[in-house]
Simulated assay, not measured.
Amino acid sequence: MDLFSRSWTALRKTVAALPDEDFAKPSGCRGWLVRDLVCHLVIDAQDVLITLVTPSEAEPTADAITYWKVAETPPTGDDPLDALIVRLAAAYEDPALLKVLTAGDYLSAYVLEWTLHHLDLPGEVRPPGLAHTREMLEKIAGAAFPASFTDTDVLLVGTGRRAPTEAETAALGDLAARLPFVLG
């Protein structure tokens, strides 16, 4: 939970430091401007607060790894369902996605999301959750990235936020054909 708090604090500081004009720029999330991404994060924070004060006695049906699924294709931003509010509403169509995680797994799932979105913001950033998020992505994907990759490179290349270089593609071997892992 300490990493959750540090990830959120670092993300808030990065957003607070963004110049106003950056909010109209594209983010690292395909089809989203920085302002769309920040709005998404604000709504996520509200979801965290609501979830933490509505505990369930039910047995968990997911954990911080199985909460995420790898999608077949990345969003393009062209489909109306890619619109921020519609995407969020669709994500909560099944309330079980949120109410049956343990508090620790729920917070860990958000460390992954906030770390990736922290990397989507402009500027040189080093979110505190990089190593943890790399470990989670490798578990979600069921594959380890080469040890020569930095945590940041694993997250950017692994989620399609950056294309791998020729050398990285060679180092990835068969794993390169499975990229990107689109979490949703």
Rank of each mutant, 00 (worst) to 15 (best):
M1V: 14
D2V: 05
L3Q: 11
F4K: 00
S5T: 15
R6W: 02
R6S: 15
W8N: 09
A10P: 03
A10F: 08
A10L: 09
A10C: 01
L11S: 13
R12H: 08
L18K: 07
D20P: 06
F23R: 11
A24L: 11
K25G: 05
K25W: 05
P26A: 13
S27M: 01
S27V: 08
V34L: 05
L37D: 03
V38D: 12
C39N: 14
A45Q: 11
A45N: 14
D47L: 15
L52A: 07
T54S: 09
E59F: 06
A62I: 00
A64W: 05
T66Q: 08
V70F: 06
V70K: 14
T73W: 02
T73Y: 05
D79E: 12
P80W: 06
L81R: 15
L84N: 07
I85Y: 07
R87Q: 13
R87F: 09
A89R: 13
A96S: 15
L98V: 14
Y106C: 06
T115N: 06
H117E: 09
H118I: 07
L119R: 05
P122L: 08
G123K: 04
V125W: 04
G129T: 08
A131G: 10
R134W: 01
L137T: 09
E138S: 09
A143N: 11
D151E: 10
V154H: 06
L156D: 03
T159L: 12
P164T: 09
P164I: 00
A171G: 02
G173K: 09
L175A: 04
V182E: 06
G184E: 10
